[in-house]
Design a protein around this nucleic acid. Structure first.
Lengths: 327, 327
DNA sequence: TTGTAAGCGTTATCAG
DNA sequence: CTGATAACGCTTACAA
């Protein structure tokens, strides 16, 4: 492994000259720079990231922390983040699991984007206190070194609920995420507000888990609650994954029940899988690419010491065929 | 940011003693170790990864390089990799794009797993020549520092093709991946061998792209080729993604054509989405979790200087409802 | 324009 | 058992 020392020796100059030349400093003559570059190529010189960042105190790497690697949901978001960061000269790495948290405090990354409820806020604040820059996508957190880029949960949940009501449904089931989820809490709050504003609406809340299982279980319970042969439920699943679970359960155990006719389902996220559901799931849509890009932008600003305001990702209602008129 | 120097000063010992204590060396008295640990905690000491790896020449990080972040396909594989590595004290980071390649030569990672055809073999060999350890999942590459963990494409393609033949199909379409894909080439070769071994089979090869678009296009072409109202095609799509594209095309433009009856489709990969197709896609299945874990295992062995043989991931035929008897 | 030299925060080899 | 001290490879004042 050739080092700048080797190059310096070959070129008959000092290591600082080599360093300057390699970094394209105007302090070095063009000819010496070229000579040094030539020798560097000849020796297959490659800089050592550890040495560089030990000195510069930065790695030019940003980490994004996800709950798991089941990217079905994250693909676009990651692409958005990566695209933006690439333009700013940063690398993106995807991490998952508590094990990987050390990368932030040990300065292996210059900043982090958090989309992982299992990452405790207390821990995040501790890092922020140490001067690390963070952008959170899944919670509210006030700190000079932390910026939030959150979904407009309130708007989304309101759109979803009002849509069900407008279609004439009077009994609405809300299948939430886990109780600890910020997004879930926000959505539930909005649902309750809408229900309060509209007379004669019955709201039944069921705690879910944001996974398919939660949707299946909710479907089972709703079916059990309904009178024989007289099912007419309107359900707002707080994410698409649970909505899909509900579709699965119904397809398997209740082929007599038709979605969009006997039972009406709205999801949240508009994940790719949802576009394949039969009938097409009605859901809340938003640009995941933009979400990722904006998070990256905020993080880079934070790192550069610019002041940043919290941001919000706007959502829209995407009407599918999974909701029909009520009776 | 407290360093071992600060701790040494506080504790009234030398930095080497601190280093030993921190690393749990038995060379230091229990009491001094405890005192040092206490001071370290008090000062919120956190080691600096760059400094450590500059010295030790390792980062305990493994990178996996993917073509893109659309993890719909990779989730399980990544989980398998991560689980294994965690047990061995390594961290896993996911990278994508040419931009990120520097992490290997610049020693930001101790080794890499490659599942990205856009990563040129020549470049990989160059890194291997420099002593970097690699495991490739998508090509054959012979080098002391490179190990392969490949899918048993031959078995998979053979199973798929033979299944179609056993069901009585005589005209078989093969929709390949891009010409540059190793997996695609292997599969095509196996298909051709099966066809040769069986008399009276007509094989039509169409080049695809491993994406949904390729499947859609192939479906369009197959429909165009077929006589009016007399469609009876058996298609082996070299991956599920294209098979899904084919399903989509048919659902949209040819609702008269029934899959598993007029047209028969086999995929490859058994991705999650495939389990939601209507009818259930017949495909080639294998354990993605095991694939990832095995790749990780081989890489760690390589890093430790152990000798390793190339490995193979076995596959099975998963019968769905997308293939019915021929006429 | 180039060279000298002082670190960056660790680990590890010696002595003591 | 503990302490000096020399690396690791690079950047960056400051000198020349």
């Amino acid at each position: 492994m050739a080092t700048i020392k080797d190059i310096a020796k070959q070129a008959g100059v000092s290591i600082s000259t080599v360093s300057y030349a390699l970094n394209g400093s105007p302090k070095v003559t063009n000819e010496t720079t070229e000579r040094i570059l030539a020798i560097a190529k000849e020796l297959n010189y490659i800089p050592n990231a550890a040495a560089r960042s030990l000195k510069t105190r930065e790695t030019k790497i940003i980490g994004i922390f996800l709950t798991d690697f089941n990217g079905a949901f994250y693909g676009d978001l990651l692409q958005g983040t990566k695209d933006f960061l690439a333009r700013k000269g940063y690398e993106l790495i995807v991490c998952s699991g508590k094990q990987s948290h050390w990368m932030l405090p040990e300065r292996m990354i210059d900043g982090a984007i958090i989309l992982d409820v299992t990452f405790e806020s207390e821990e995040l604040v501790r890092y922020a206190d140490r001067g690390h820059k963070l952008v959170v996508l899944d919670r509210e957190l006030s700190h000079a070194n932390i910026n939030q880029v959150l979904l407009d949960n309130k708007a989304g949940a309101t759109l979803a609920t009002e849509h069900l009501i407008e279609e004439g449904h009077r009994k609405i089931y809300a299948v939430t995420g886990p109780g600890s989820s910020y997004d879930s809490k926000q959505r539930l709050q909005a649902v309750m507000q809408v229900v309060e504003r509209n007379a004669g609406i019955e709201l039944i809340v069921m705690e879910g888990d944001f996974n398919k299982e939660g949707g299946e279980l909710a479907a089972k319970r709703i079916m059990a609650e309904s009178e024989e042969g007289l099912v007419s439920a309107a359900v707002f699943c707080f994410n698409d994954e649970m909505a899909i679970g509900m579709f699965n359960y119904l397809a398997e155990y209740r082929p007599d029940i038709r979605i969009g006719e006997h039972i009406h389902i709205v999801g949240f996220d508009n994940m790719e899988l949802a576009s394949y559901s039969q009938p097409r799931l009605t859901t809340i849509d938003y640009s995941k690419h933009k979400w990722g890009a904006l998070a990256a932008e905020q993080l880079v600003k934070l790192i550069n010491g610019d002041t940043v305001e919290h941001e919000r990702i706007y959502v829209t209602l995407l009407k599918g065929k999974s909701v029909g008129p009520g009776n």
